[in-house]
Structure formats: C-alpha cells, structure tokens
Design a protein around this nucleic acid. Sequence first.
DNA 1: TTGAACTAAACAAACGTTTAATTAATTTTT
DNA 2: AAAAATTAATTAAACGTTTGTTTAGTTCAA
Lengths: 214, 214
Amino acid sequence: METELNDKQLQIMQKALEVFAEKGFDSASVRDIAQRADVNVAMISYYFGSKEKLLEAIFLNNTNSMKGKIENIIHSRAHGPMEKVDLLIDTYVNVIIENRTFHSLMMREQVLLKDGPLYTYVRDMKRRNRSLIEVAVKAGQKAGIFQKNIDVSMLAITLFGSVNHFFSNYKFLCEDFKIKPTDGDFDIKAIEKLKGHIKIMFKAFLTYGISNKK
Amino acid sequence: METELNDKQLQIMQKALEVFAEKGFDSASVRDIAQRADVNVAMISYYFGSKEKLLEAIFLNNTNSMKGKIENIIHSRAHGPMEKVDLLIDTYVNVIIENRTFHSLMMREQVLLKDGPLYTYVRDMKRRNRSLIEVAVKAGQKAGIFQKNIDVSMLAITLFGSVNHFFSNYKFLCEDFKIKPTDGDFDIKAIEKLKGHIKIMFKAFLTYGISNKK
DNA sequence: TTGAACTAAACAAACGTTTAATTAATTTTT
DNA sequence: AAAAATTAATTAAACGTTTGTTTAGTTCAA
C-alpha cells in the first residue's frame, strides 16, 4: 500500500488534483487529466488501477502531508496555553492555504464519503486536529486561565468551520470586501482579518468568567 | 420566470433534490431521477429544458423558501439585542434542519459556482443572512452592551461556518459522540449543544471588555 | 531476452437530449 | 350538447457523445 511513487505518477496526481478541484471528481474526465499531465489515457489505469483509486492516492498523499505540517505544532517549544491556541489557529490557516487545491477538493467530496479509504483518511485527520485543540484547552484549564465549561468538540467545530467557511466562500467574500480575487492566491489582509478575529473570539470565550487579576 | 409549478413538476424537483444531494449533481442521472419520481425520462427535458435548468429551478425554489423563513426573525417583536442574536442562531439552525437535503446539496455545489443564476441565488441568500447579523450587532452596540470592535463579516463567517460545519461533519461527529446516525434526522441533544455553544461563544465575544455593572 | 513503460484503437456502458407517435385534456365550432 | 379541432401530457425508442477501462501491440531499458 505504501509503495513509492515515481515522477510520472506524481505528475499525474498533481494534475489530477487540479482537475478534480476545478470540475469536481465526477465531471473530471480521465482524458482531460491525461492531456494536462501529458501522458496517455491508459497510464492512469496502468499506474493507479482506476480513476477512483487515483483519487484515493491523492487523498492519502495529501492528508499525510497535512498531518506532518500540523503536528509540527506539538514540537514547538511553546509558551503559554493562549499562545498555543494562537499558534494552532495560525498553523491551521497556513496549512490550508498551502494545500488550498486539495482542501477545496476535500471540502467538496467529503459529504458523499461512505465507508472506505477516503472516509478513513479524512476522519483520522479531523480527529488529529481535534485532539490538538483538546490538549491546548486542557493545559489552559489546568493553568487556571481558561474557564472550565468548554465543549472541545464544539470548539473544534467553531474553529475548523470558520476557517473552512472562509475559504469555501472566498469568492463571495471578495465581493463584500471589494477585493479582486487573484487566481489561486488569497488576500493577505483578509487572511490576517480571519486569524485575528478567531483569536480574539477564542480568547473571549476561553477566558469567559475568569477574572483578570495578575 | 416566476411561472407556477404543477404537481408533477414539484414531484420531479423533490425527488431530484434527493438524488442530487445523495450522489452529487453530476453523478445523478436523469434516468434515476425519473424512475424515483415515477415519470418518463423525457418529462424532465419537457418540463425543465435540461438537467441543469432542473437544478436551477430547485435552487430558486429552496433559496426563496429559506428566505421567507429566515426573514420571520425581523418581524418577531424581539427583546434585547442579545436575545435577538440568540433568536438568529436558533432560527438559522432550525431552517437548515428543515431544509437539510437542499442545504447539503448547496454546500457541495457552491464551490463550483461560476457566474450564473445559481451563483446569484446563493450569494443573495448569504447577503441577506449576513445583514441580519449586522442589524443585531449594531443594535447591541448602540445599546452599549456590545463591544465596539466587531467585524460583522467575520462574525457571520463564524456563525454560518460553525453551523454548516456541524451539519457537513455530522457523520464524523456521530462517531465522536457515539450517536447512531438515524437516517435523515439529527440528534436533538447534539443540536442543543451546538446552539448553546454558539450562543455562549457569541455572548463572550460580543460583550468582551464590557463591564457587567447593572 | 525479458519485463516494464507506453501507445493508439477499440470496447461496452451510460449519459443527456430529441424525435415521432399516442393518449388525454381542453377549447372551439357546429 | 355533441363533434371537431387544438393543445398539452406522456411514452418508448433512438441519437450522438462521452465515459472509464481494456486490449493488443510497440518501444525502450536492463
């Protein structure tokens, strides 16, 4: 399962990811992918077995890649609990920006996931992300600077939901903010707005009812 | 454009919505839809012109329906600004539950929307929802019980993002909460958790830095 | 010489849509 | 009110594409 990927395979996967994200998995034809990757159509079946398994390979590859990046947070010699939460927010947003094409694809296809490899990859990634929040929250509570009444699952929904919604609705947001949506890239100011808002909101919530005596 | 819809058309639209939400627009075949709606395949082209226009009819119908329900908030003789925010949260969640099938479809297809009728329907609905938050926030600020430093666009992202994420990830959440995902229906306790969490979070954020002297 | 990499062509299946014919309902004319 | 004419609703079949995949053969490197 964990076989090495040669250059041609990676090339196909990269172009396929683009086409999948652009048109959706079902509308993306293997001929289109093959053409953009500059290979023969038969190479997709030859290397991956099927279009479906090509998607699986892409999911496995990208969820693993994101896993590595997110888990760097753990090894950061971190400061206080609040700073850890801020770091988590920054990192999550940055990772999504780095993997924006895959993230867009995943957002679209996750709704239809039944049991199967894709479901497992996505579920495990979500679990890992959630548990990072849990660790940070419990640390803050232990230190006495976070309130006790915190539902971590719901907090995770707020964080990931807000960030995902921001990127999913970026096209609509550009109209609100009067930003020209430069193809593929996000407006830095908008990103900072997002990060700042979530940080303040989380701080307000996490410290709700905690007196500020130093 | 605003022609009346006869029973057969409504029947097709309803079944089509189910199939679209279940398989995604592209994977849903007109033959499948026709079979479930118990009509001949040709009736879809006959009544709607094309599969694409059938989708448009569904979007127009449902966004209008949701518009009506959400705007009931305005006409509620409401209490204080904070109660209005709570009402907004409750209503939005309830409307999504009522229209869960369409909401699921919209979540999936909105990413691919270019210009066109669908984009307009969705964009206008989002704008209306956002402006409801804006009104409530400004009222609270005027009354002096909400803090001044509030980015309404970002607050809207947090609200709608959290709620949408909750429903999009309901399948995953059930595993976390050890709920059996009853087909189509949502767990009442989980819904109350969601509403409660967002309300507390919003209260903490909106009143952040406001002293509680009565 | 053996096996992997690669290709053009063919494959059957499924797709959305159209056609041509028929039945049902409605309107117009007698 | 009955008959005729017209329009709407409905059907099975066919249309031309496009789909993902396979096949049979060729090129290339070891």
